[in-house]
Design a binder for these strands. Structure first.
Lengths: 374, 374
DNA sequence: CTGTTAGCGCGTTCAA
DNA sequence: TTGAACGCGCTAACAG
């Protein structure tokens, strides 16, 4: 293992000079010595010891990135964006995976703290559990009081820099767009009841329907992943309802729902329209292609890093907007199902006769419709 | 930033004692002092400094993982497997991405060397370019001569520990299975001509056809990713051929090919059967679901780490076997297309009249057929 | 412009 | 069992 001292000796210079040549000191070094040091370093195969640099400088070049699941394209794309950004800053990324366990997330922050990561990025939905949040804040406080910077991609509930997707507004817009296609009875595959992302998206959707004068959607909870979507879809099918359009609160669930529906012979979009949320490119290829709300995921990863690195005193927030993307999985519905030909879904309805038609529908569903929250 | 010395002071013990309590020294410490140290550490929010430990011990706890593209499920799953394995060993993983640029791979090895990673894992196909291989070996030699351990997931051309998928044999088996369905004229979307993985899979497929007495496949090269598959498929369509079955050398290309074929109105599997390679779960959801050769990707990541960590002197190799999975994207073909009804693909044929029927077909294609290489 | 030297936080002899 | 002291590889004053 070649050290800087070896290089200095072979070049016939002092340690300090070798250091100045090989590591970005702004100090100038004579061309001759510089050449000698460089050639010695190359000849000996010298590689700086970043851990020693970290110790000496009191600051590392590692970004700690905590995600929930690397297999989920949502996190893979965010991670890709963050890693590219770190690379641009000349930093390396240490990646940890929680597998959706908040306790593991806390442990990972401690690990990254031990690693002396300069910044920690936490990607993924926060939970609506004050006890968990308290423990997370405590670990983050320890890290920050030691000089660490933190940014969260998700909800601003930990008092950190935050990149927050407009989940509520995106779901609202989506509902408006779907209602604009003539749908009036919806189901929401709503994810776990404690996941803030799932909650926000569900609420935004519900609010939009209320604002449009439409009946509230059927809520079916389930895990936030592919199998959760599949299960929820199966349970939906087993229910007695007159739903024509289903909103799965993330793309993974939508993908699973599509599979589940197909297994039961329910055709999308002919029997049921279906939409997801996130805009991962993985849902471009299922047939039918899935409607969704597209988030700028890679950019979110990069933004989080930039936020954390440029951070001063007060935590700052960046909100990012999702774009409604309608695709083959949703189809327009005739406004009034008065014609008995080809009723979209099972016959009976659990809701009496739906309230009178909503004339404001189409105008409210126009592209100009505003989301509820600033 | 709390240091071990702070803890020692607050506990009224020496630095050495605090070290022994908080970090896995085998030395025994009196129960009383131990308690005092632990409580002081908790009270002060002490977190070990892993960089200082690395320096003092001369060995780090970081695994360097180099992959080509995090968005590609192939690498995401391998990375997931490796990260889990690292976690089991109490190590953290630093992830680098080459974006399929061999030069970046070399640079990343240098970076991870600087980080004093204890092992470096290189995932992804090696290239058939001796100049590149030489530079890669040189960088790895520098790293290894400094005590680093290396394992490659791919081909054994760098003289390292290697986890090598049986690409050739898997493609051979796949060809046999597809021929068993009655297909006789194949195309291979063969990927880049310098990528060993693409080469091996193509060759295995070609060999099988030769062994079965079938004509060689039409080869269409292209990038090793989704768009490469799409482009290749489009070019295939533009050609004059009588192909009934297409083998894309990885799942990403197969997914792209499916999209490309659909755009041009070619229906899979009715007009053309299609198969990929890798067995990423992402191809479960396209419609039709894609046939493939399934590799134990997560396990491969873990194996590579175990190999590197347990490594002694000579490099060792582990070969892993792929399993042919036939799905909806392939369909059986009538043995002799004598009936003029519904010819699968465009009319004319570039091959004269195909040689007389191959009677050995079905038996050669039976499950018992052996792959060519041990 | 170049060299000397004092730490950075911790593990680990070596003595007590 | 406990403590004192040296060194891991490097940076950053400081001195020349």
């Amino acid at each position: 293992m070649t050290t800087l001292e070896d290089v200095a000796k072979h070049a016939g210079v002092s340690l300090a000079t070798a250091s100045r040549v090989l590591n970005g000191s702004s100090r100038h070094v004579g061309a001759d010595l510089r050449r000698r040091v460089e050639s010695a370093a190359a000849r000996l195969g010298y590689r700086v010891d970043a851990t020693a640099q970290t110790l000496a400088r009191g600051a590392s070049n590692v970004v700690g990135l905590v995600i929930q699941d690397l297999i989920d394209p949502y996190f893979a794309v965010i991670a890709d964006g963050a890693i590219r950004a770190a690379d641009r800053h000349g930093m390396v990324t240490t990646l940890g995976t929680t597998y959706r366990d908040p306790e593991r997330e806390i442990a990972l922050v401690a690990t990254l703290h031990a690693q002396r990561a300069r910044v920690v990025l936490l990607a993924g939905s926060r939970v609506a559990d004050e006890a968990v949040l308290r423990r997370q804040r405590a670990e983050l406080d320890v890290y920050r009081s030691a000089g660490g910077r933190v940014a969260v991609i998700g909800q601003d509930v930990l008092g950190t820099d935050t990149v927050a997707p407009r989940n509520r507004e995106g779901a609202y817009d989506l509902a408006v767009a779907l209602a604009g296609l003539g749908h009036r009875r919806f189901a929401v595959l709503a994810g776990p009841p404690v996941l803030l992302t799932a909650i926000d998206r569900t609420q935004g959707f519900v609010e939009a329907l209320a604002d449009l004068g439409l009946p509230p959607p059927l809520l079916v909870h389930g895990d936030f992943d592919r199998d959760g979507g599949r299960d929820a879809a199966c349970r939906l099918i087993a229910m007695d309802h007159d739903v024509t359009c289903v909103f799965a609160v993330n793309d993974l669930m939508a993908t699973g729902a599509l599979a589940g529906l197909r297994e039961h012979g329910v055709r999308v979009p002919r029997d049921l329209s279906l939409a997801g949320f996130d805009g991962t490119s993985s849902i471009r290829d299922p047939v039918p292609s899935l409607a969704t709300v597209r988030l700028p995921l890679a950019r979110m990863g990069a933004m989080a890093l930039d936020l954390a690195l440029s951070g001063e005193g007060v935590p700052r927030h960046e909100r990012v907007t999702g774009e409604v993307v309608l695709r083959d999985s949703v189809r327009p519905l005739a406004r009034t199902p008065s014609v008995p030909s080809a009723p979209p879904v099972p016959p009976a309805s659990s809701v009496p006769s739906a309230p009178a038609a909503v004339p404001a529908n189409r105008s409210a569903a126009s592209p100009g419709a505003r989301p509820p929250h600033s």
